[in-house]
């Protein structure tokens, strides 16, 4: 498998294209030239740093370092879930619920895939473990964030209906069933759409990368299918867990809808 090496000079040409685009946006007065350049600089710096980290990690290759890396990635994903919420649970519950559900789904599915399906020796070989966990976490994060967002927003909007149902003596699970269904659907839709469009509309990034790096397309396709399925499962179970936990938190022990446990943040990201 021959890979053509890229020198920094080659990347400079690509960077020149971005600079040209920035110049054009400046001429067209789009007022996004600055954020475009900042984002481009961030890409370069962040990826260079993660490259260094991965080089070190691959060289060390011990379970401790892989596990530490995994936990750091998980915590960053948890922070990102919170940052994307317009309405979040008071007192760190959003972070806790998001992180816990990503941990349950993304971690166990990564370990399962490594041990049972791919089976590298040892199973935590960072070359397999880190990219796999990264892709699972990234997608699960999106699902969890969307699911939680729909849930808290929906609870605020459907307060009258939910309390109306509670007044008629419905159990909190019954009263919130529609809300939970909507939230889970919102979390699952992006992955379902991605699977439906794979290969027709877009060539998935990982597969493209593998082919560029010299893999035979048939093998790259197999890996891509594996990844898509594990991502779907991870996102689905993660969203299920997050929505279930968050709904539980929205009701108290007396089955009251507690919207006072939600705080509004002025400027969400994402």
């Amino acid at each position: 498998m021959n890979v053509i090496d890229l020198s920094w000079w080659h990347l400079g040409i690509a960077a020149g294209l971005v600079l040209a685009l920035a110049a054009c946006t400046w001429l067209a007065q789009l007022k996004i030239g600055r954020s475009l350049l900042v984002a481009a600089a961030r890409t370069a710096i962040q990826l260079a740093l993660i490259g260094l980290v991965l080089e070190t990690l691959f060289a060390a290759g011990s379970l401790h370092w892989v596990a530490l890396m995994g936990i750091v990635m998980l915590l960053l994903a948890g922070r990102e879930v919170v940052a994307r919420q317009r309405y979040r649970l008071r007192g760190g519950w959003s972070f806790g619920i998001g992180t816990l559900s990503m941990f349950i789904s993304a971690f166990s599915i990564t370990v399962l895939t490594l041990v049972v399906i791919i089976g590298p020796e040892p199973w935590y070989t960072p070359q397999y473990a880190i990219p796999l966990l990264g892709m699972l976490l990234g997608n699960t994060m999106t699902g969890v964030a969307l699911g939680l967002e729909r849930l808290t927003e929906g609870a605020r909007r459907a307060r009258g209906e939910i309390e109306g149902r509670l007044m008629l003596g419905e159990h909190w699970k019954q009263a919130s069933a529609q809300l939970r269904r909507d939230a889970m659907r919102a979390g699952l839709m992006p992955t379902i759409n991605a699977m439906a469009a794979a290969g027709i509309v877009s060539l998935p990034g990982m597969m493209t990368g593998q082919i560029l790096a010299g893999s035979p397309p048939a093998l790259a396709v197999k890996y891509q299918i594996l990844i898509m399925f594990t991502i779907t499962a991870g996102t689905g179970f993660g969203t299920f867990a997050a929505v279930a936990l968050c709904t539980r938190r929205l009701f108290d022990s007396r089955e009251r809808l507690r919207l006072d446990r939600i705080v509004t943040t002025s400027r969400p990201r994402g």
Binding site: G164, M167, G169, H171, W172
Partner: peptide, 20 residues
């Protein structure tokens, strides 16, 4: 009493009703 059973016994009809 579990809250939902209590509310079935002590029923409130709010000023603005909701229909689902």
């Amino acid at each position: 009493l579990p809250a939902h059973q209590w509310r079935k016994a002590v029923m409130m009809v709010p000023a603005e009703s909701h229909w689902w």
